[in-house]
Design a protein around this nucleic acid. Structure first.
Lengths: 341, 341
DNA sequence: TTGAAAGCGCTAACAG
DNA sequence: CTGTTAGCGCTTTCAA
């Protein structure tokens, strides 16, 4: 397909009048090369437009220089900053990025008997695994072969330890609900929970409960529904709440996308926000400030989690030890959907 | 890092009592292997948990079995179906997917003098290039070395021919504007244009103009603004229109995300949709039916474009000829934001 | 610091 | 249909 054969390291070595080994050392910085020869090599590389053949490097070094990102799905506003953070940092570190949404595979694998691991130790040096992307068996297998892994928005299984990074869910929600109760006198606060078995769901719920408890407000099952961290699901959940005909004066939607869905359902039913019910979210995605009214929420450093995760993974690949758990701080962002002006 | 050395094709061959060549043939289906031996090989592979070493395959075959997807950015609701379509089909075809948003790189490369081609012929077998992701020079270079490329939502440069795939923008918009004029008696229709130098922008504008012309309505520069296919930009563009104090009774927002922004701006200003102004979009993203009111728009088969693009690319990689241009049909979706009930 | 040379695991002639 | 074998382009001992 290509017109000219691409230049090899041998071509460079020949042109520079040196051995391939020296060129290789120069390229990888794996040993000091005399300044004089380094210059020659650099010139030869430029002249030939030489780029190392990745596959050959991999084969010889037994490294892929690629990291894999496993996501449940790539849809949704939430994953944009995740991808951005991961990609930017990965490139910076000289790794290429393989992205795979396990949901896409599930659709695909249905019908076939085979379960092929599209992203694993055979084509990456390490894996970034987002909550709900792979099952415990695979996690355990990766751990057992000592393969570098970082878990995002997901705690390590109890049986063994895999480095995990996430945000301060509980305290964030705590501040959020405190604000609703203390500054806006709301007491009947609906919660639209995220997906079950999702750690964020667990901790956000806990923050919600603790705030209620601290203010002497009982936890009421009637006020709880599952929004699934998803606009459409949240919209329907909100409708179900509305159908119950129960009294409430605020909605904690689980995340911003859910908040958007909750607002739709509320508005359809003729409710005014925040007069009839305050609505708050979590994440502080771009969309938050563009909702009507602008959404009060908890700022979550999503992109930073992503880029820090890459950092942790690369360290592991390099054989360094990394902290078992990293928790990035969150903070309350007051806009208008809570009643602030 | 790994405990056990991974099995090689030699281990499989030894266990099966055959040659590596036969095993290789079986794995790649590159020649017929007798049923009896095939069974033996299959068993050996299972027993050893053998997976081919990708780098070795690449090096020996001079193929990467990876395709690259170049996007301007991964943010935005629009790209979710693109990614889904590409990934699903790529996996199906046995290719892995490398994603790169050129915007992320631009941020990164700023400051450095180097421009490294993160995705190109050295690490992929072919490239899927979305509109506005790479410049003409790089396109020309890829073409000159005969590297497989498919352009998405972007026409081939005039100087040479690269296969391109996109949707029927013009006729879609034509039907949309016709609907506004004929069925809802709108005559002063604002257009929020997409980014300049974007082919979709050009064709959508043409559809808009042709519909106006067909109905004897003059094209008025005052009614035109740039929405950039982006919620926030569109919102601001809409505000600018509003500031002009001119009369209008409908808004063609360029795409659905822009429509969402336009709606926000209109609502802020106290306009009712569709009574005071109809609002219509393009794409028919998931969000369209969830806007208030549900958005009348043009359905664009985004995911299908993506998966068809993979198909075209894989064909090229296989040395097959492919059509220079592929245009997928669009159709009008009437919901309520146009005034339909 | 440098060079020579032995592979890394696999594919693809080539010969049978 | 099957086996033998020569590389693919690079990294990495081992000696010098």
């Amino acid at each position: 397909m290509l017109n000219h054969k691409r230049p090899t390291i041998d071509d460079v070595a020949r042109l520079a009048g040196l051995s391939t080994a020296t060129v290789s050392r120069f390229i990888n910085g794996s040993a000091v090369v005399s300044a004089e020869r380094a210059a020659k090599i650099k010139a030869a590389i430029q002249e030939l437009h030489y780029t190392p053949h990745l596959a050959a490097q991999m084969l010889a070094s037994n490294k892929t220089r690629a990291i894999g990102l496993l996501l449940p799905t790539i849809s949704g506003a939430f994953f944009a900053p995740v991808l951005r953070g991961v990609e930017t940092r990965a490139i910076e570190k000289g790794y290429s990025l393989l992205v795979h949404s396990t949901q896409a595979q599930a659709q695909n694998a249905a019908g076939k008997g085979t379960f092929k691991k599209i992203l694993a130790e055979h084509n990456t040096d390490g894996l970034l695994i987002f909550a709900a992307s792979v099952d415990a068996t695979e996690l355990s297998r990766l751990h057992s072969i000592g393969f570098p892994v970082v878990l995002l928005h997901q705690a390590s299984p109890k049986e063994f330890s895999l480095p995990a990074i996430t945000v301060e869910n509980k305290n964030g929600v705590r501040a959020l609900i405190d604000h609703l109760i203390e500054d806006h006198q709301r007491r009947r606060i609906v919660q639209l929970r995220g997906p079950e078995n999702h750690d964020d769901t667990y901790w956000r719920d806990l923050g919600y409960r603790q705030s209620l408890e601290a203010h002497g407000i009982p936890y009421e099952a009637d006020l709880i529904e599952t929004g699934g961290f998803n606009t459409e699901q949240a919209r329907q959940a909100m409708r179900r709440i509305l159908t119950r005909g129960i009294h409430f004066d605020a909605v904690f939607a689980g995340d911003d996308e859910s908040a958007s869905g909750a607002m739709m359902a509320l508005r359809e039913a003729g409710w005014r926000i925040p007069q009839d019910a305050a609505v708050v979210g979590f994440d502080d995605l771009n969309l938050a400030e563009h909702l009507t009214p602008p959404l009060t929420t908890v700022h979550s450093p999503i992109e930073q989690v992503a880029s820090e995760a890459v950092e942790l993974l690369v360290k592991q690949i390099g054989g360094e030890a990394v902290p078992a758990e990293t928790l990035l701080p969150t903070y309350l962002v007051r806009r208008n959907s809570c009643g602030c002006s």
